[in-house]
Amino acid sequence: MNEFVLALGWFGLYAPVALGAIGSAWGCALGGSAAIGAMLDTDGGYGRFIGVSLMPSSQVIYGIVIMFTLQHDAMTAEIGAATFGIGILSGFALLFTGVRQGEVLASAIHASKAKPEIFGVSLAPAAVLEGFSVFALVFALVLAGSIPG
């Protein structure tokens, strides 16, 4: 039983990075596909399309920060259980926000191509999703600080 909890602890420790990376990869692929399509139709402003399509890459960075915060000198059953809970849930939050951010960025790129003046405003939903990722990061850090040992 003890070994199983330790295994879950290691699983939870790496989960924010792995799930955050999946979310970032998926989100960047969605946004990137839209940016490539938009570049076929426009004669300029390629940089801004590619730039916003990379916005979901922050999720994996948050995942790395959470992983280092959860890391302890030794993995005990108590630490393992806490690490599993915080790591898995924050990882899923990063995965979900990454994918959804990619979707709203694709819509934003598509819409701002037709109406360039809404480019900035159309990024607001993606910024809100980024805020949710930051919530997941900050409260994972807060909870990680209360793990004994």
Binding site: L30, S33, A35, A38, A106, H110, K113, A114
Partner: peptide
């Protein structure tokens, strides 16, 4: 996604 965004409004 690529195809839809490559088509002008």
């Amino acid at each position: 996604i690529t195809l839809a965004t490559s088509l002008p409004h």
